[in-house]
Amino acid sequence: MIWIVGALIFWAAMWVLNVQLSNGPRTRITTLAVPFIFGVTLLVLWEGIVRGLQISPILLPPPSAIAVRFANSLPILWVDFVQTFVKGALSGYIIGCGAAFLTAIAVDRSPFLQRGLLPVGNFVAALPIVGMAPILVMWFGFDWQSKAAVVVVMVFFPMLVNTVEGLRAADHMQRDLMRTYGARYWQGLAKLRLPAAMPFIFNGLKICSTLALIGAIVAEFFGSPIKGMGFRISTEVGRLALDMVWAEITVAALAGSAFYGAVALIEKAVTFWHPSQRG
């Protein structure tokens, strides 16, 4: 009982603190502190409720147990991380986004193909492509190649649609200016239209960064060597070792956020001129 009451009091206190902070002047510290406090509050609430209601660790382990397990099994987590994220997700992400980018450039000269590709690409991007995973595992075997293939298929269409859309972003006036300069097609592409497309391209890259991790992990459910985050999650669920599963989820969340953050940072450096980046 003490745990629950304590957690609730902590929650109320932190909420008041957050309201105070957010009503004050908006500085760099408060914009970071407020979400941080909120996150800590959630963890404390979780810990308090699990302990207070004495929920079995088989159902929901408290954050402290997960942290202990995380610290104790770093080597296994690292092996899984390399297998799933570096080999599967990252290579698939690079191949898939690269292929989509090149395809978009290839169809760029044909407005006919573009008009056809955009609706179809939009449609395919909305499909449950994860369902392709069993087929691709069947084709490419159990190792990371099949995971990379799933990622390639998953990221291809969102990336393609965004790039094609982006290549149309430069407006007529700017294109006419390039023409008056006597710029050739490739010059116009490199100097005007690709830079103008960058906000769209990075939008695609950001969407794909989360898709890539999901694809690599889900593909492992359909067959994998005895390492990998998806493999570990499905086997540890079977053994009811939920603290290990949560440790893997933590790794996945950290990797996903770091990946997304890295892409966002590069975006900030590349598209510094865009209104949304100038704040």
Binding site: W15, S234, I249
Partner: peptide, 23 residues
Amino acid sequence: AMDMSVMPWVITSQTIPILAVAP
């Protein structure tokens, strides 16, 4: 307060591959 505290976590929540832990 909700804008400042919840919104960043809503975005973070989507970087967790939920599909992967669905099972």
